[in-house]
């Protein structure tokens, strides 16, 4: 089983993956932030390149920050991006 989730990417993560956002069918056994990253890296070389340095990747689920060890729960929207540089 899987669920359909909207993925959004920002800054150089977006450039390396090559799309701004997309809908993907996320397998139900992918439960944590870290597992999402591992699963995405298996989708292709562009994902593997973008998400290679796990320390440099930040995540948000339903527009709230999560840690890689957190479960993603009922994620409708998952965002991946580098450390933020606003202000």
């Amino acid at each position: 089983m899987s669920r359909n989730v909207k993925f959004i990417y920002f800054a150089w993560v977006r450039e390396r993956i090559g799309v701004q956002e997309e809908r993907l069918d996320l397998p139900d056994d992918v439960r944590t932030g870290a597992e999402v990253i591992t699963w995405l890296k298996g989708l292709g070389k562009n994902y593997a390149l973008a998400l290679d340095d796990a320390q440099a990747i930040r995540m948000a689920v339903n527009q709230e920050h999560i840690h890689p060890s957190d479960t993603i729960g009922t994620a409708r929207e998952i965002a991946l991006f580098p450390p933020m540089t606003g202000g």
């Binding site: 800054a11 948000a60 920050h65 991006f81 580098p82 450390p83 933020m84 540089t85 606003g86 202000g87």
Partner: peptide
Amino acid sequence: LKTSAPFWKREHLADGTLGGWV
């Protein structure tokens, strides 16, 4: 705001080229 608000800066250089992400 600097560490947790989702904004990203990219440089546009004076010579007209696109710089990197900060």
